[in-house]
Design a protein around this nucleic acid. Sequence first.
DNA 1: TCTGCATAAG
DNA 2: TTCACACAGTCTT
DNA 3: GACTGTGTGTCTCTTATGCAGAAT
Length: 572
Amino acid sequence: MAREWTNFFAFFCKLTVQSLILCAVTCGNSFVTDSILTPQTPAPADYYQNNFCSVFEFVLGRFKGIASDQLTKDLKSYLDASGDSQRLFARLLTRKGPTFLISSLAYAEIAELDVAIEELSALDLLQYSPGVPADQILAVLTKAQLIDYFSVPSALTKSSKVAIIEHLLSHNSDLQICHRCQQRTRWLTITAPDHWRLVNFLYFGNSGQDWSTFVRRDLGLLAYETVALQSQQFATRQILDAYLEEKEYANLIYRLDEFPNLAEPLLAVLVGDHQTAGLLGQRQRLRQRSLLRLAKWAEREKRLDYALVAYACVDTPPARERRVRILTKANNIHEANRLLAEIEQSPRSATERLFAERFGKRGGGYQPPTTTIEIDETPESVEDYVLLELIQDGGWGVHSENLMLKTLTGLIYWPICFAPIPGAFTNPFQSGPQDLYAADFFTHRKEAIEDLEASLSLEADFFAHITQIANAKRGIANRLVSWGLLESIPVDEWLSAIPFAQLQQLSQFLIRNLTEYRRGFPDLFICYATGAVEFVEVKGPSDQLQPQQRAWFEEFNRMEVPARVVKLQLTK
DNA sequence: TCTGCATAAG
DNA sequence: TTCACACAGTCTT
DNA sequence: GACTGTGTGTCTCTTATGCAGAAT
Ligand SMILES: [Mn+2]
Ligand SMILES: [Mn+2]
């Protein structure tokens, strides 16, 4: 599952020649003043319970009849259970599990632990000291307990815990181990951990967020934009099941090194139906990514015809590029040239076009302005080294890569990003629309974007808009906006450094091309003492421009935005 | 006895 | 078990 | 210079704590 994380509290150094201001953004300064939670202070007794009740009501309301009936039953069981039981199970869900020693359950908000355990067992949400895979129970015991409970050869007692566990596992059956543990201690095991993982997924709409999301919000670390949820993911059981199946395949592809024999059946399944084109959005994206990964794996394993078949089913880059390379290697120049022509005719991305233009042509294509600096040894951070070199005579700069333009663009187009268009907002705690990085993000918002841009065509309005959004939305999660960056370099400072026309051009371009151009932006932003600004990509002695970085430099050239590459070269 | 790591917690 | 970037090794020109 | 494979940082936030393993 894709994890798009805004770099919320990264460290930024705004470097000036006079001083080096370390702007480590500490999270002591929270954005919201009165919070439900305080660190190191007990949460309200019903805090976790309430959170899970609302989560389960949400999931039940949406996915009853869509998710499996067993899952629905579990959710209902929880909601009907007693307060103590709800509070206990809520705690367990925030912990690692799925097995917990009873001795590790000490919660002030639970009056009668035994009764709660009894009830949750009767509901089959958890089990009391059940037989579990032996490694699971052994893992929660301490080394001392292992030695106490089992007859460990004295030679082994001084070796690592892992070694002891391995010894026990190879000399005893799971049943024997559990039996022995049952004589000495008691534990709980969550009956169906996969149910709760699915609930997590259905609630947030992705598996990248977890229950600590509530805590961070309630500590006041960040807030979430309020957007009405207009539609839901997975409208039918069939769509959900199909997606979950697709995810299973994806997980297997990650483990091909372990199970190479699965390559063949997986390829058959994924290309077999040839329904790839007919698949729906989310599943379709996953299918393409799986096929790309499978093809890449085959390529590494030198199973080139396999790779070709898999790549041929994918229409997103770098599928065609890989095919050209494989065909060329196999001396099938004809086919390679045919594909190259196809790419040149209708490239699907800037990097794909650049590939076709430059393939087989050393030093071909646009060459960005480059400055070479001689150095005796490679500094620890090449970016910081070049930054300091460039502001010798005053000015300031920052190593912020993609964050800088993404952040300012995110502020400018804030109302667009959170516009309630169908399918964009489906779940609580979203930090952006579902299709933010989808190819048709712009198309679906064309009119609104152009209207906004028309209303901001004057410099004063443009800057006032950005300032207003930055103040009004401070601390609200937005996938494009890094509040940490704005903490170290306030929006005013950015706006007085960057010329209006430049920021206008760059942000208009980025919002139209987020899929490709969210990456590859140069390392440094420099504001010289003269007031001139420049974007600088630093290249160490063993580094060179990546394709997407090259694509950005083409755009800088077209937009007449000052930018260059600074290359470090070791003196011999 | 010290130190780094995993886990829990808010 | 993700992504974006840098680095290092190998081959080519 | 081009290409490929691999490493690294991010544990979305910080702190407390107990354990494991190493140092003394
Ligand atoms: Mn960089
Ligand atoms: Mn760089």
